[in-house]
Amino acid sequence: MIKMNILEIGALVPDFEEENLLVLFNETVPPELRDISVIHRFEEQPKDALEFGKIIVIGGREYTIQKVGEEANSNFESLGHLSIYFKDDKEEEILPGAVLVTPSDFPILKEGDSIQVK
């Protein structure tokens, strides 16, 4: 299991709820992306943590990974960067550094909470 602790929630993160998109970054987040990102710290470094069928727990809710972009694991490992699309349409196209999860309900986030991949 991979666990991340939420350190900061960018001011514009709630604006992306309409798009059902959540952007994660570790503390190396570029300044221009800080406002749109959930900044976190890994408890331990992930290795190939993202794959079809795994569960991501955010705000006490469970989401099932349906699609994994070809660069998602490498970006997640090196930068803590991941774009999470909350969509019920499993055929939706995603970016290379993203995952698509179901259900489509956007999570409730709080600083100090954790995000887990299991």
Rank of each mutant, 00 (worst) to 15 (best):
G112F: 02
F52M: 13
I84W: 03
S114I: 00
P31T: 00
E71A: 14
I36C: 11
L95E: 12
P107K: 12
L24H: 10
S104H: 08
R61C: 09
I2H: 10
I115N: 05
K67H: 05
E17Q: 13
P46H: 05
K3T: 13
N20E: 08
E91V: 03
I6K: 05
A11S: 13
E70H: 14
I94S: 04
E71Y: 11
K47S: 10
F86W: 09
G97A: 07
T64D: 02
L109K: 00
Q45A: 14
K110Q: 11
L109P: 00
G59P: 00
I55W: 03
E77T: 12
L33Y: 12
L21G: 02
L21S: 14
K67R: 14
V38S: 08
G112P: 01
D88Y: 03
H81R: 00
Q116V: 09
I39C: 11
Q45F: 08
Y63I: 03
I115Q: 06
G112K: 06
G97Q: 02
E62K: 14
P46T: 08
N73C: 05
R41K: 14
D89N: 12
I2S: 10
I39S: 04
D113K: 07
L79R: 11
L82F: 01
P31C: 05
N5P: 07
G69M: 05
E43A: 10
R61V: 05
L24G: 10
D88M: 09
I84Q: 01
K118E: 15
L95D: 14
V99A: 09
D113Q: 13
S74Q: 15
L109H: 00
A11W: 11
Y63T: 06
S74P: 06
K87C: 10
V38G: 01
P31D: 07
P107L: 07
H40E: 04
L22N: 02
I115W: 04
D113N: 13
I6G: 02
E111T: 12
R41F: 04
N20K: 12
